[in-house]
Simulated scan of single mutants.
Amino acid sequence: MQRLENAKVEYEQGLLEVIKQEVGCDYLSDLHAAYSFMSMRRVLPKIDFHRYSLAECQDALQYICAQSIKISDQSQAKAYLQEFSDNFNVKAPKA
């Protein structure tokens, strides 16, 4: 009988989950909050979008940006999300 010691199976996290964790959100829905876009600007350069399928990148874009987006590759997905978060205007509340 074969004995397996310290067997470990690692499951790769999905792109949305990685972005959520890097931004510091508790829930995926928090990625729609203004503070998330400010943090997203900082963390996106660290994430390798090429580790994920084109379909997963497109799904992440559509979820975060709340619009239908067509992309041709992972680099375009990252650039689109970076531009989207850079252009997200956060207005200070009126006093």
Rank of each mutant, 00 (worst) to 15 (best):
G14N: 14
L44Q: 08
L28W: 06
Y11P: 02
F49Q: 01
N6S: 12
L31I: 05
S29H: 11
G24D: 08
I19Y: 02
L54Y: 06
V9T: 14
K20E: 02
R41V: 13
K46Y: 10
Y27G: 04
L16R: 11
S29Y: 13
D26I: 11
K8R: 07
L15H: 00
S29G: 04
G24S: 08
S39A: 15
R41W: 12
N6W: 02
S53K: 06
S39L: 13
V9H: 07
L16V: 09
G24I: 06
R42E: 13
L28T: 10
S53A: 05
A55L: 09
R51W: 04
H32F: 04
K8Y: 00
Y52I: 04
M40H: 09
Y52G: 00
Q21F: 01
D48P: 01
A34L: 05
G14E: 14
G24T: 07
E10N: 08
R41C: 15
E56A: 12
R51G: 00
N6V: 02
A34C: 01
R41F: 12
L54N: 05
V43E: 10
K8F: 04
L54R: 07
K20S: 02
M38G: 09
L28P: 09
K20M: 07
R41L: 14
L54C: 05
Y35A: 13
S29N: 12
Y52S: 02
S29W: 12
L54G: 06
S39R: 15
F37N: 13
M38T: 13
A7N: 03
K8G: 00
E56L: 02
L44V: 08
G14R: 12
A33H: 11
P45M: 14
V18F: 01
E22W: 01
H32V: 03
S39Q: 15
L31T: 07
N6K: 12
E12G: 08
G14V: 08
L31M: 10
D26V: 10
C25Y: 03
P45V: 12
R42G: 00
A34K: 10
R42K: 13
E12P: 03
F49W: 02
S36H: 03
A33W: 09
G14C: 12
E12M: 07
D30H: 14
L31N: 09
D48I: 03
C25P: 02
A33Q: 15
F49S: 00
C25V: 11
K8D: 03
K46C: 02
V18H: 01
G14W: 05
L31G: 09
L15Q: 01
I19L: 06
L15F: 01
A33L: 15
L16K: 12
C25L: 08
M38F: 14
Y35R: 14
L15R: 00
A7L: 15
P45D: 13
R42M: 07
E56T: 09
F49L: 04
M40N: 06
A7I: 09
K46F: 08
S36R: 02
S53C: 05
A55H: 06
C25M: 04
V9C: 03
D30K: 06
E12A: 12
H50R: 12
E10P: 01
A7V: 13
V9N: 05
N6Q: 10
L16F: 06
C25T: 08
C25A: 15
E17S: 13
K46E: 11
R42Y: 09
L54K: 12
V43I: 15
D30M: 10
M40S: 07
A55G: 04
D48V: 04
K20G: 01
Q13V: 03
E10K: 10
P45G: 11
Q21M: 05
M40A: 10
Q21E: 12
